[in-house]
Structure formats: C-alpha cells, structure tokens
Nucleic acid binder design. Structure first.
Lengths: 256, 256
DNA sequence: CTGAAAGCGCTAACAT
DNA sequence: ATGTTAGCGCTTTCAG
C-alpha cells in the first residue's frame, strides 16, 4: 500500500477541491491548511496593464505576443508594457485565447493505466515531446476499462482538444472513429484497430522476433520453440511470423 | 528500448501536430495518414441549436445545463432542444464556459517522472479521484529536473488551473509559494517543504518504522540495525526516529 | 415559461 | 506607431 490508507490521496484531492468532509483531516500526516474552494480572483488582464500604462489594449497585446517588431512599437513603449506586466504578475488567460483563436493548445493522452510501467514510460515520453512543442497534456487514465476509455474520449472531444494520443484498452473503435469524424487527429500507440484510418506508432514486432531468432540461430541453436499468445492479436501474429520466417530461411524445423 | 527508435514516438507527436518532417514516416510501422494541422471546425454551438429549434440562446443554454426545471421550461421544449443537440453532435465549448465562469475545471499534476512506477501509481490514483469529480488533469512530467518543475508550475499558473497536486523534485519552494500567493490551492505528496503552508499527503514514515521495528523485537530479535538515507531529508529522519523510539521503548541498544 | 443583451479576456481587421 | 471595435461561445441578470 502506498499510503497509510489509500483514501488519504482521495481525501487530498477532495480537500484540494475545497470539499473535504469533516473528520477526514486525519488522513493527512501533517496539519491541513484549509483553503476556500478555489477563490476566483480578479486577475491581471491586458486591460489592467493598458490602464496602468495609459496605452491601448492592442498595443499591450502586441507587445506581450512578441509582435511588437512587426508593428514597429517603440522600444520605450515595449519596456513600459513589459515592466508593468511583470510587476502585476500578468499571465494571459488561456480560456480567452482559446476562445478567440479557436485553439486549445492541448492534446489528450488516453492510457489504459499508469500503474503499468510500460504505459507510464510511454506517457512520460509523450508528455515531453508535447511540452516541448508548447502543448499541454490532458491525462486520462482508464483503469484498463473500455467503458472508461470511451467516456474519456467523449470528454476530450468536448474539450475541443487538438489531438489525441491513445493506447487502446480494448477492441472497440467507434469512439476513435468519432474523433476522426470531428477531424481531430488521433495516433494510436502499440495497438491499432483495423478498418479505420488511424496512424500509429508501435513496436516492430516482426523484425524484433526475426532478429532474436536469427541471433539464436547464429549462436548455433537449431531447435527453437516459440511460445505465442493469442492468435487474434495482431502483434502476436507478427512476432510469430518473424520467428517462422527466420526458421524457414535457416532451413530449420518448427512446429505449426 | 520501447520502440524501434525512441524517435518514433516523437515523430508521432510531431505528426499529430501536423508538422512531421518529410522522411520521418519511416518510423511508423504502418502507413501514416496525414491530417492537416488540426483543422478548425465550425462547431455546433448553442446558437446553431437555437436556430434549428427556433428558440432563444437562453432557453437552449438552460436546457443543456439542466436548469430547465428551475425555469419551468416545458417538457416539450426540452425534448426539442435535447434532440437537436444530439443530432448536431453538440459539445459545449469549454473555453467559452471557462471564460464566462472563470473556472477552468482542471487541476495540474506535477510529477518528477512517470518512469518511476511509484510516481506513476500516485498519478493514476490522483487522476481517478479527480476525474470522478469532473476535473481534467493536466499532466506535467518534469524528468526529475527542478528547473523543469519550476517551469511546469509557471505554465500551470498561466492556465488558471484550479489547483495543483505536486510531488516535488527538489528543495526549492519559491514556485510553490507563488502558487499559494495566487490563491491556488496546492497539495504536496510525499515530500514537503518546511516554511510554507502547503498541505500534504504522505507515507506515515514514523509509524511505519516504529511498527516494523516492534515487529522484529516481538519476534525475539535484539540487535537490529537501521540503514538510513540522507539526514537532510525529513522522511528519513522520521523513519529513524520510529526505529530509535521502538528500540528505546524495548530497552535495546542501538547505534547513534 | 421565454427572450434580449451584457460581458468574461483576448486578437485581428480596419482605421488613423 | 498606436487606437477602435467586433466578436469568439457561453451564462446570467433583468425584463417581460
């Protein structure tokens, strides 16, 4: 067990959401600092900055977006804006930008479960690649449950996500097809569904099996067994094919 | 190595973003279906539905938000709206809702690295708890790098996230304090920083060490060693204290 | 029971 | 070199 009680983490989240039930504080090993439920703040907006600097919204926006040069905004003005922004701790409101630009700058990552180190590893890599490109990653852990996966995809679609990276849990594909219909790019990792045009990245099962069989053959072995999984799984069949091809090429006997 | 080449995944992401460099298709084991860079679509909005049903935006919005009862909207009207919404495959624009409501419905999850199964496990649990409450999880994998963590927190703050759950990589705390200053609730998992009022959930190191030492003592052992880690880490010290307390109580000798 | 209109924060024509 | 303004999609007073 990770924690004293698994519930401690849930309590932690509930707390974070400002909805911790009384009495649950005991799950925390140290005092709990009770925030109010996320206080909406009157944030610094470009308007605040515009007023502070006596400039127009446009000018402020342009400086903050780095298109100052394009509009030949004077160095002086730029510094003025930048200073004000820094002082006011300005951060652009992504919701507003999203709405205006019709881009969400985020992509969904649908994973069977992060408890599986292999999937977690993939998630880690994907997360890096995406962050480097300036995208946020919206994580959906599906607990290896197909219904949960379908629901996750629905949620992502509603968020007007810009793309989805998915490691499918099961064999359903209607939900993925729905994404495609909405013109949302999807890439599938390691497993794929036949019949729908989804691009995917996967282990090269065939060549891997071929290579390892050849390796054993070169080491002088003749009688090599291949333990296979379910014959209805594409990846399994590819591995078996790699094995049989290598055996055939070497003129060795193999069962099946 | 997970994939033929680690780059395949990166290529996958680049592809997803519509920016795959020519020639990189070879990293895909199967044909790549080239989407355009995320085509912005004229989505179904409540306005579309309003026009289709000859109702006002207000009424449509109310039905779709479940506040139909409150405003006593007739069953007939409701059905009309609901049908139209389903037919048009309507999904509310979260950016617009966020902007209007000043809520993002998402919380940030900052993890040293998902490659560590322990952290991945935590991420999995957090993700579930949050999803159950209707929140999205924005994942930030920091590659065990403190600078990356600081950057991640900055990014999250800019997204007007509603809360942050973090497993800190290092000992810096200024970035976390900054979150607190913005009134963004933070909970820290497993490690914490002294000096700032962050609530956290953690392994109960002290009691765990106490329990296990007592267990050994009850089993009749007398000479029990305790291998400790860095003395500058709080969790380590708590474990050591659990050990020494148990030894003292039993009247046994221990080093240090 | 239903609708009109304002406004959330931002960007991009379109002025000047 | 800088400003005015419309509008992204949604919710919510306020007004029937």
């Amino acid at each position: 067990m990770l924690f004293q009680e698994k519930h401690s983490l849930y309590a932690g989240c509930a707390f974070l959401l400002g909805r911790l039930k009384p009495g649950l504080e005991r799950y925390f090993t140290f005092p709990v600092f009770l925030h109010k439920r996320y206080r909406r703040l009157k944030n610094t907006t470009i308007k605040t900055i515009a007023e502070a600097t006596q400039l127009s919204l446009t000018t402020v926006s342009r400086v903050l977006n780095g298109s100052a040069k394009k509009y030949r905004i004077s160095e002086e003005t730029q510094q003025l804006v930048l200073k004000a922004a820094a002082k006011l701790n300005y951060a652009p409101n992504r919701a507003a930008v999203s709405l205006r630009l019709k881009r969400s700058f985020s992509v969904g990552l649908v994973i069977p479960t992060l408890s599986n180190p292999y999937f977690a590893d993939v998630a880690s890599m994907v997360s890096h690649a995406l962050r480097a490109k300036g995208f946020s990653v919206v994580l959906m852990d599906c607990d290896e449950d197909e219904n949960s996966e379908v629901e996750a995809v629905r949620l992502l679609a509603a968020q007007h996500i810009e793309g989805v990276i998915i490691i499918p849990s099961g064999s359903q594909s209607a939900h993925i097809d729905n994404l495609l219909k909405r013109k949302i790019p999807v890439i599938s990792i390691d497993r794929y569904h036949e019949g729908i045009p989804v691009s995917y990245v996967a282990t090269n099962h065939y060549e891997g099996a071929l290579d390892i069989t050849q390796y054993l053959l070169q080491a002088g072995h003749k009688k090599i067994a291949c333990l296979q999984g379910s014959t209805s799984v594409v990846s399994n069949n590819l591995r078996v094919k790699g094995y049989t091809d290598a055996m055939k090429a070497a003129g060795c006997r193999f069962s099946g």
